[in-house]
Design a binder for these strands. Structure first.
Lengths: 199, 199
DNA sequence: GTTGGTTTTGACCTGTTGGTCAAAACAGGC
DNA sequence: GCCTGTTTTGACCAACAGGTCAAAACCAAC
């Protein structure tokens, strides 16, 4: 039973913390900075979350929950190539719509996954193992070209998340004209995976 | 004219700083931590480099220099597919042999490239523009399948650097058995780009 | 408008941070 | 072994870090 104020403030804090943590990493972020971005004083922020760590944890918990959804949606009974392309599309949309979440995750991994190690070798690995069996079956049934399922997933993650995590580089290389790179990126990735998976 | 001691200590500092900066980012790294890792006292470290910033800059300067080499080596007069596959191979080897450098770079980009923005839209963009024209020519000449050159480069970077930057995740998903993922990764990427670039 | 809980704040504490400085320790050439 | 420049150190500083606390301000129900 949270009051109106509580809802507003915790939301503002998480929003601000996402900004700060995703661009500076955990150790590089400061509570003051988050508080200022949320429009609160530091003690006031610490009234809602007991510590810097707690904010970070809350953020990660919410993220990891949603992170697996697109992969879960990969349907064994669907048309193989369509299913994989749909997964690519969903992941790319997430990069476009939630780039800060992607960077938060990237920061955590690059820094050695000190807080989400168990998640990676637990939930994530289990799901990837399961879906890898599906991919392998599709390949042995000749429905897609032979491919290492694990490295296929790594490829999808790398290619789609790149547009969020390395956004600055993408824009710098493509030049000043403010073109949205996502339409071209989607076309490119659809071509890439179609050619890769049809012999 | 650097003395023996200077050479040894500056090398030790840069080595230690690479470790620390690449795993914690600039703001998350502390001078004390770097000094300890280098086996020096903090004031002693600051005798060799005037500031934390200076160490970071020295590291980045050295890195950016080497970063472009593999792409520069892409030879317009070579066999198109071979040239691109060779580039992929070189980049993947860099991920394997210099993962910390890759993570240092990734950290910098994720954090908005505050220190290397000019490099991205300068040297890097210029080189990519140039090589993109080569790719485009190959495509219009029918020597490789049609492809967006810029997104092709993004794909190569994303796929190869992923194995360095997301190393922890790769190992977690592949499971505890300490298998070196690089041989499989190389085979996978060669297949991927061969299929992508041959009609 | 008083009451009881919620929210906010300023002052404060302790440890850490990047960085300075003068003095001490240490080279190596003579 | 002495001298000159190099290297190292302990003590120190101001700013900032995460976090605490008691008191004040606010709010809503009565």
């Amino acid at each position: 039973m949270a009051t109106r104020i509580q809802q507003r403030n915790t939301a503002a804090i998480l929003e601000a913390a996402l900004d700060v943590f995703s661009t500076h990493g955990f150790r590089g972020a400061t509570v003051d900075q988050i508080a200022r971005a949320a429009g609160l004083s530091k003690p006031n922020l610490l009234y809602y979350f007991p510590s810097k760590e707690a904010i970070h944890t809350a953020l990660l918990d919410g993220l990891l929950e949603a992170w697996l959804d697109p992969l879960r949606a990969l349907d064994e009974t669907g048309e193989p190539l369509d299913e994989i392309l749909a997964y690519v599309r969903r992941k790319l949309e997430m990069s476009r719509d939630f780039p800060r979440e992607s960077r938060l995750f990237a920061n955590e991994i690059i820094q050695g996954a000190p807080r989400i190690g168990p998640y990676l070798s637990g939930e994530l690995k289990d799901l990837v193992d399961e879906k890898s069996r599906v991919i392998r079956r599709w390949a042995t049934d000749g429905k897609i070209a032979p491919v290492d399922p694990y490295h296929l997933f790594f490829s999808i993650w790398a290619l789609t998340q790149h547009y969020a995590d390395f956004d600055v580089q993408v824009h710098a290389v493509l030049g000043g004209n403010q073109i949205d790179p996502y339409p071209d990126a989607l076309a490119h990735l659809e071509t890439l995976f179609t050619r890769m998976l049809t012999r």
